[in-house]
Write a protein that binds this DNA or RNA. Structure first.
Lengths: 142, 142
DNA sequence: GCCTTTTTTCTACCCTATCTCAAATAGCTT
DNA sequence: AAGCTATTTGAGATAGGGTAGAAAAAAGGC
């Protein structure tokens, strides 16, 4: 299959490998610009779309509608609070076996999976019982 | 905690229970309007947000940025093609045990989890090997 | 029935992502 | 290296889901 990447795709791949964390398209745009490897926003999105389709990176959507991109890698999952939006990273993942089964039964070529738990973190639970609505902290998703 | 729901919240909950599938906010808006239970779009979103926070419903985001809402229910997961966007529903889920562990170790009150596999469906795999880019079919996500 | 609080509406707006199309670049062929 | 074609990129306009703010409407309490 086509394994040659465009210049933009290479830049983005390199960048993602160097930062080694999930990052938004807009942030990639800014960061590459700082490194004098800038490209237009449309190009960023196009390159990400292409890389996504060939399984070279994986995507995780936040509830605010923005997507975080990262290199395809070992299982990295999250525990996310519905109240404050804060995410905790997890290590364990019990789905490897199921993935193999799915591959066989659906003839699906699986690139990666997402697994995320939603609920209330201990802080927001406490806030709810005492005075209601301490309202959302501005915590960044990890 | 506050278990009383507003009129709008009740209408939405009822509707979601009656349809028993994941549906977008915009579609809820239209459907309720058809049933003469209409409300403004802002109200739909606000009610959904409130219900989400109390764990009365769960959310699944599509890659186009729209969210599908459904009643909190048994595990319902998906196998999604990155090329054509089509989703297959799954039954199996191996994460129940992990959920319990997380609840204990993080003191997180877990409402639900999402599990989704991404890759290429058999059709899009075939399309890639033969003539490249048969380009995306307009299949609806399930 | 009147006042206060909550809920709803309406409209304007934000932000992520996509489309369009012309300009630039890369890849071939000679 | 020059010329030609196909691919990639840039810039700005546009789409579309979702949000914010303030005024109107409805619900609750006395």
């Amino acid at each position: 299959m086509k394994t040659q990447h465009t210049r933009s795709q290479k830049r983005i791949l390199n960048f993602l490998q160097s930062v080694n964390r999930a990052i938004s398209a807009q942030d990639i745009y800014v960061e590459l610009r700082n490194q004098n490897q800038g490209m237009s926003l449309a190009t960023v999105y196009r390159a990400l779309e292409a890389l996504k389709r060939e399984g070279a990176l994986q995507v995780r959507m936040l509830s605010n509608g923005e997507s975080l991109y990262s290199c395809t890698q070992q299982d990295k999952h999250h525990l996310t609070c519905l109240e404050c939006g804060k995410s905790i990273s997890l290590d364990k993942c019990p789905v490897q076996e199921l993935e193999t089964q799915l591959h066989n039964s659906y003839k699906f070529k699986i690139y990666y999976h997402t697994l995320e738990f939603f609920g209330l973190c201990n802080i927001c639970q406490a806030a709810q019982v005492s005075g209601n609505s301490e309202d959302r902290l501005g915590l960044d998703p990890a």
